[in-house]
Amino acid sequence: MNITLKVWRQKNSKERGRFETYHVKDVSADMSFLEMFDVLNEDLITEGKEPIAFDHDCREGICGMCSMYINGRPHGPLQGVTTCQLHMRSFKDGDTIVVEPWRAAAFPVIKDLAVDRSSFDRIMAAGGFVSVNTGNAQDANSILIPKTDADLAFESAACIGCGACVAACKNSSAMLFVSAKVSQLALLPQGQVERHERVISMVNQMDEEGFGSCTNTGACEAECPKNISVENIARLNREYLSAKIAK
């Protein structure tokens, strides 16, 4: 099939960007979306032009590096699928596809479609952990955890830190991302000791990074490639409230 792409090009964080139009011919349905970009970039290089910069690494939907805003939706048209796992069979011959970077004040553009998400790392450094030094642990099976709790914690822990939730949100809120980590640890006995401190530090850091506030529109859940549930946000709010009261 033949595809027309309108892609955001921006030389660096300082210069202004614009859309450029490209035509990609003979796209096979078995190609991944990023493989189509590979083909386009190969053509651009051969023509002596600059290829389009975009982030990617695992191409298996797990590292969270890929981040394209495709036809107005982070990671494109499918539910629960990252950009790298999107395949061209989801499109048809003659389609025009608009591709932009994540747009959020806390995610400045580095070049073209690549953005800086280091704000997420700083939120994690503020409290997304259990303070246990290596070598201090008791036997693993001495902590019994009901399967349902373990499964729920796992579901929250499946977040890949991609930032689609922020890109999808009209307020650029990072609540889904932060709540996934807070939930995982709040659901497990290991996370109890620091639960109050954790939620407050992480939320404070989130505010400091310039993410917007949550107005419960649920766009994050709808666009999250790992189906992280908004119930996590409710849990974060409860955690936050009880931490504030305890203070």
Partner: peptide, 22 residues
């Protein structure tokens, strides 16, 4: 064996049986 202990202590959600064991 220590590795599993350490990871569980950090909150790594390994698969569990209904009785709560790994």
């Amino acid at each position: 064996g220590n590795i599993i202990d350490q990871c569980v202590a950090q909150g790594v959600p390994f698969a569990r049986e209904y009785g709560g064991l790994l």
